[in-house]
Nucleic acid binder design. Structure first.
Length: 299
DNA sequence: CTGCAGGGGTAAA
DNA sequence: TTTACCCCTGCA
């Protein structure tokens, strides 16, 4: 594997923090210089932004340009998407202005399924830790710049892993779900490659729901964040429920707002762009809260 | 120091 | 519709 480089000049809608902290991925980490390094497929890539140019370098099996264009969704016009969403209302405008550099990555389907099963009733630092340990133990090692990185293990690589071994990695009650889902995918009870050919998102969603540990929220995250790339979904977690209630529903107790109500509202407001609208809203609402807490601590 | 709530939900009752 | 679930962290 040879180190490769790729430079993107004059990019719009591309901010590292927005892309990597908006909650869609778990394997990118910030370096001291503000760049980010991550692993996807068998690539280890460092991304740095200088002005309006983005520098990618790292090790790739294939041509780095092809890999980057696909993974970072470079062929989609986010300026146009933002323009369309901004017209909806002031809330969308505000959240887009906050997360204007978001892009929805095209992540490997299998990896996205497993990652979001792990995410259930869990927090981000712990999710990231589990995924790193899983990759280190069962993935393939790639050395770059004197550091070791590990690919996300394939289904085949997890074939003989026991529930107990998962438990030792800190998966908690998710151990059985990972075990069962891996089996189901290896047995073709759910055929992943068929999902790409099914245009009806609802049908793909039903297939995903058959997997152990995949409920409505996780299914929607998989549809949106994997290379299935369906934007007509609206994953509802605590933050999305909160922001939708704050902005539109205004119920006293947000926990009492039904999912159904939020789904209908999202569909009529955002339609085919629901998924990306959800990302801007989620990121905005979550970041302002996290920043408030940070500021309290630092005085 | 101990106790407890809560975190990007799901599955079982 | 309600409840328990593993594990970790933050806070009373």
């Amino acid at each position: 594997m040879v180190e490769q480089e790729y430079i993107l000049k004059n990019v719009k809608s591309f901010e590292l923090k927005d892309i990597f902290d908006c909650g869609q991925c778990f394997r990118w980490n910030e370096e001291i210089d503000g760049s980010y390094t991550g692993v996807f497929k068998s690539n280890v890539i460092n991304v740095q932004k200088k002005g309006s140019d983005v520098y990618f370098k790292g090790v790739c099996d294939n041509d780095i340009k092809t890999e980057i264009e696909n993974y970072f969704d470079l062929n989609r016009d986010y300026e146009d998407i933002k323009k369309r969403l901004s017209k909806i209302d002031g809330n969308m405008k505000k959240s887009i202005n906050y997360g204007k550099g978001i892009r929805i990555l095209n992540q490997d389907l299998w990896e996205t399924i497993i990652s979001f099963i792990i995410s259930a009733n869990n927090n981000i630092p712990r999710i990231k830790g589990i995924i790193e340990r899983l990759s280190k133990k069962y993935g393939k090692k790639i050395t770059w710049n004197g550091k070791e990185y590990f690919t996300f293990p394939t289904a085949k690589e997890l074939e003989n892993v026991t529930v107990q071994e998962y438990r030792q990695l800190g998966l908690g009650f998710r151990d059985v779900r990972l075990y069962e889902t891996t089996k189901m995918i290896l047995n073709n009870q759910v055929n992943l490659s068929d999902l790409y050919n099914e245009p009806d998102t609802a049908k793909v969603r039903n297939q995903l729901l058959k997997l152990s540990g995949v409920g409505p929220k996780v299914a929607d995250c998989i549809l949106l964040f994997s290379d299935l790339k369906r934007f007509d979904v609206f994953p509802i977690d605590v933050w999305v429920r909160r922001v939708m209630n704050d902005l539109y529903i205004k119920e006293d107790d947000e926990t009492k707002v039904s999912k159904r109500k939020i789904e209908i509202l999202a569909k009529e407001k955002f339609g085919d762009l629901s998924g990306i609208a959800q990302q801007y809203l989620f990121y905005w609402r979550r970041e302002i809260t996290v920043n408030v807490i940070k500021n309290k601590k630092s005085g």
